[in-house]
């Protein structure tokens, strides 16, 4: 399992978190689970980077937190996208796509 996983490039974690939260509000553990699932276990998010990232995004005002109850009836801190967060997500998605396309082009032609 471990050998399949790859390191996240710098700065992409924020994008992934924002994208995950675009669907619905989630708590921290669910976010990491979702990213792992959707990426078919390729991407594993370490707690060590997930939580500092969440708190950073919250401070920037892109996501906000509120306390709720999770599926298994536990109190959990749910994060949701704010308006500015949504704008930021679009921006970052765009630039990521451009970057990915450019990198792909270079890899294929060069």
């Amino acid at each position: 399992m471990a050998q399949k996983r790859i390191e996240l490039p710098q700065g992409t974690l924020d994008l992934l978190i924002l994208r995950t939260l675009a669907l619905e509000p989630q708590h921290g553990w669910a976010i990491s689970e979702r990213i792992q699932q959707i990426s078919s276990d390729v991407l594993l998010i370490q707690q060590g980077s997930l939580y500092p990232a969440l708190h950073r995004l919250e401070r920037r005002g892109w996501i906000k937190a509120k306390w709720g109850t999770s599926e298994n009836n536990r109190r959990a801190k749910y994060y949701e996208l704010t308006k500015t967060g949504r704008k930021q997500l679009e921006l970052e998605q765009d630039s990521w796509k451009k970057l990915a396309a450019a990198v792909a082009q270079i890899l294929e032609t060069a």
Binding site: W29, Y51, N72
Partner: peptide, 12 residues
Amino acid sequence: EELRSHFENQVE
């Protein structure tokens, strides 16, 4: 609390 809940989720 946030970190603890994550911890417990993972354990489960």
